[in-house]
Every structure is written in structure tokens, then in C-alpha cells.
């Protein structure tokens, strides 16, 4: 919607343009001297960036994906993290990540879970009942107002590759869930389909551990702010997530696999300072 219909970019050229941009950025990060770049889409007489990345030859690269086999292939070949940006729960992401790991295996690569990411909306409270009360409205707001796309603008021609069209048709024919940008789910559907994981810290941790292990995903991107959540509720959610959920998950996969895609000295960063927010109260 935004790139093609709002900004006027040609959807048929987006992927090739993106791939060329990746090459330009990686060269700019790694070359020590200014250089000219004469690409198919990007033409620059002088490429000379500042500041330069700390990492050499480059920082790790994470790529969001929605199920295009070309993206699985690229991530495997280039050593990028494939991040399944599913706003539609782990059951929808399962088919996408299965395809990714199949491609990694086909390439003869390792199934290192840290080379896969997964986005999950999360709402934590002291109890499940409190979580249902606090996060129902933000969840409904998010799926009705923030993510809903008019079907006219959902799929500009060429935005999805032919392989992705075949993959999604296969998922539908197999009865597997697929991303639904054009319909608004009810709160019950949001929960049943796992779009949002809600509950007490222990419940959320247990659920996330199950998701990570079943999807073989080591990079959990947990969305603690969604919809119309205000600052106070967001801080409450983030604090519970950081203090009571994350510690239960830190050991995941780390005993068996190295994480090449995360800054090593940032893994156990000291707690960010500031005053502790007050948690919202639940009216009985």
C-alpha cells in the first residue's frame, strides 16, 4: 500500500531494486575508500558514508519476510536472519518458517534457530484475567484500525512473487492459515489464532517457549505496544516482559547454538535506569 500506491514505486521492480540496494549498502559498509556505483536502479558517482559501522565487514542483517521462497533462499545464501513478520500468529508463521528451514536444509545449511526471527504481539499482566481486561481494547484496535488494508490496495501486481503466489495457494489448499490483512478478526479469534499472546508472566513465558521450540526460532521479536495502548500500560507490559518473562527464556537454544546475529556484549545489557512505572489497577 505505502510503497506502491502512496509513493508510486513500481511493484514489478521492487524486488530487484531491493536486492541492488542491499548490495550497495553492504559495499558502502565494507569499502574503505569512496567508490562509484553504477547499478541498474541506483547510480551514484560518489559513495562515501559516515559514520562507518563498528562491525567488520558489516553488522548482521535481518530481513522481514511474509512467505516468498526467494527471500528464504536469499537469507540462506547470504547468511541473513529470516524474520517471519507474522501479525497473524504462530500457526500462520508455521508454514512460512517450515518453508524457510526446508530451504536452509536444501542448501546444506545448519538449522541454527538464531538465524530465524518471529514477531509476536504480547500482553503480560499479573493474571490472565487482568491481561484480558487490559489488552482487549488495544488488540481490537490494532487489528481493526492499524493493520486492516482495503482489499483494493492489499496486493499490487508484482508485489508478491509467483513463487509466493504458489506457496499461498498451497497453504490455502492444505487448509493452513494464511495472513488476513483484509478482514477484521474478533477478540476471540485474535486469541484463538494466537495473534496476541496474553496472560501472566509464567503463562506467557511457557507459551513463547513452546512457540520458539516448535518454530525453531531463536530471535523472538516481542511487540509490547500495539493499538491504542498508552504510555503507562506499555511500560507496565514491557517491564513484566523484561523482568518476569525474558529471564525464563534466556537459556533457549544458547546451550546448543552460537548466535552470530546479535551483538555479543549486548545480550545481558545492564537494566535501563529510570523510575519504575506504576502498574495499572484492575477494577473487579
Amino acid at each position: 500500500m505505502d510503497t506502491c500506491f502512496a509513493y508510486g514505486q513500481n511493484p514489478s521492480m521492487l524486488r530487484d531494486r531491493y536486492l541492488e540496494a542491499c548490495e550497495l549498502i553492504k559495499r558502502a559498509w565494507s569499502e574503505s575508500q569512496p567508490f562509484p556505483f553504477n547499478g541498474r536502479f541506483y547510480k551514484h558517482r560518489y559513495v562515501n558514508i559516515w559514520p562507518r559501522p563498528v562491525q567488520s565487514p558489516r553488522p548482521p542483517i535481518w530481513v522481514p519476510g511474509g512467505g516468498a521462497p526467494e527471500t528464504w533462499r536469499m537469507c540462506g545464501e547470504q547468511g541473513y536472519v529470516y524474520a517471519a513478520l507474522s501479525y497473524f500468529g504462530y500457526e500462520t508463521a508455521r508454514g512460512v518458517l517450515h518453508g524457510y528451514w526446508e530451504e536452509i536444509t536444501r542448501q546444506g545449511g545448519e538449522r541454527n534457530p538464531f538465524q530465524a526471527g518471529y514477531l509476536q504481539l504480547v500482553g503480560v499482566a499479573e493474571t490472565r484475567q487482568e491481561a484480558l481486561y487490559l489488552y482487549r481494547e488495544p488488540a481490537e484496535y490494532f487489528y481493526d484500525k492499524c493493520l486492516h488494508t482495503n482489499p483494493r490496495f492489499a496486493v499490487p501486481p508484482g508485489y508478491a512473487t509467483e513463487s509466493a503466489v504458489r506457496f499461498r495457494a498451497g497453504q490455502r489448499n492444505a487448509g493452513n492459515p494464511v495472513a488476513q490483512f483484509t478482514t477484521t478478526p474478533t477478540f476471540e479469534q485474535i486469541l484463538d489464532r494466537g495473534y496476541v499472546v496474553l496472560g501472566s508472566p509464567d503463562e506467557v513465558a511457557e507459551c513463547l517457549r513452546g512457540i520458539a521450540e516448535s518454530l525453531n526460532v531463536g530471535q523472538l521479536m516481542l511487540l509490547a505496544h500495539f493499538g491504542n495502548m498508552d504510555r503507562e500500560l506499555t511500560r507496565y507490559n514491557m517491564r513484566l516482559l523484561a523482568e518476569r518473562v525474558a529471564p525464563q527464556l534466556r537459556d533457549l537454544f544458547s546451550d546448543r547454538w552460537p548466535d552470530h546475529w546479535w551483538p555479543p556484549n549486548a545480550r545481558l545489557a545492564p537494566e535501563v535506569g529510570g523510575t519504575a512505572p506504576r502498574g495499572p489497577t484492575v477494577s473487579a
Binding site: N10, P11, S12, P157, G158, A160, E162
Partner: peptide, 21 residues
Amino acid sequence: PVEWSVQSVRAMESAARLLWP
């Protein structure tokens, strides 16, 4: 049916390649 669908998608993409936006 899937390949016919892909063929239709490709035809629209080709049109878009020339005519967008």
C-alpha cells in the same frame, strides 16, 4: 487452477511494469 492464477498475476504485473502508476 494455480498456474492459471499465476498466469493472470503475471499478466497484471507485466501491465503494471509498463503502466504503473
